[in-house]
């Protein structure tokens, strides 16, 4: 089984609110000096891939986009957890690409990697939550697509996947090749890497492909169809008001206010 897992590096979603900032020029989150982690569901996708490999054998390739130097930690972690090979697409546009653009670059990289049975990615990224990369990859690669997958199993050559639904799950049989977007459940919590594997991961080769070398990734051609016009931090305000009068008057005033606010 040849599996490719797409890993996105995002600014730690647990970053203290004080350190969260938006660069007004790029309309993107400021990443400098902030810890980067693998986007939450992408780690679940990697875990699902590694479990399948543990059971049926094969190869797991970790794929990420990011300017050189930045991609390192995610790739090393993936290798330490058990990925066999790693590819980082050196992306001069930084990390500000939208899902549509990312899917295009990833498609080109996957084509260059070549053979694959499965492509896994997180069901949504921890920063932009667009949920489009999986389906767009499937479209571009002419592969089957299932979203919100929590478990996969190979039985008699057929891939059985569990797709989370509102009140339960769907059990689907999928033909290969397929692109699956993965959500979390108790069976796919990312494993801790063994220390020995962390140390060997440091020596495993990582292929770094300049984005310009990948065909069909030019972003200058047709526009992605989506443009970020503005990003703003939600403003939270708190106001305190003392109602005048004695207790009875205060109760009456308060009741009226709450009614006005439709809270009563």
């Amino acid at each position: 089984m040849e599996i490719i897992v797409c890993l996105k590096q995002v600014v730690d979603p647990e970053l203290p609110a004080r350190d969260f900032a938006i660069d007004p020029a790029t309309r993107r989150q400021v990443r400098e000096g902030r810890p980067l982690v693998i986007s939450t569901y992408d780690e679940n996708a990697l875990e699902v891939a590694l479990q399948l490999k543990d059971r049926v054998g094969g190869k797991v390739t970790a794929l990420t986009l990011g300017p050189q130097g930045v991609a390192g930690d995610a790739i090393r972690l993936a290798l330490a957890m058990g990925a066999d090979e790693a590819v980082a697409v050196d992306d001069p546009h930084g990390v500000g690409l939208l899902g549509v653009e990312k899917a295009r670059v990833l498609t080109a990289a996957i084509r260059r990697i070549g053979r694959f049975d499965l492509v896994l990615c997180g069901c949504e990224s921890a920063d932009w939550v667009e949920r489009v990369v999986g389906p767009l990859l499937a479209e571009a690669l002419a592969a089957a697509c299932v979203t919100f997958v929590s478990r996969i199993e190979l039985r008699n050559g057929a891939l059985l996947v569990r797709r989370m639904a509102d009140e339960g799950f769907h059990q689907l049989e999928v033909r290969l090749p397929a692109v699956l977007s993965v959500t979390s459940d108790e069976t796919n919590r990312p494993r801790l890497p063994k220390v020995k594997d962390i140390m060997t991961a440091r020596r495993k080769p990582v292929q770094v492909w300049p984005m310009a070398d990948l065909s069909g990734t030019s972003l200058d051609g047709d526009a992605p169809g989506v443009e970020v016009r503005d990003v703003a931090l939600p403003e939270r305000t708190a106001r305190c008001e003392f109602l005048p009068g004695d207790a009875a008057a205060q109760v009456a005033a308060l009741t009226q206010r709450l009614r006005d606010l439709k809270l009563l």
């Binding site: 810890p35 801790l192 020995k196």
Partner: peptide, 22 residues
């Protein structure tokens, strides 16, 4: 913890957090 990477889940979360954000 190091040879088997088998640590109770909530402790593993603490270790991951230590690794990612110190």
């Amino acid at each position: 913890a190091m040879e088997e990477a088998r640590v109770p889940e909530t402790m593993a979360d603490a270790l991951r957090s230590l690794e990612a954000r110190g």
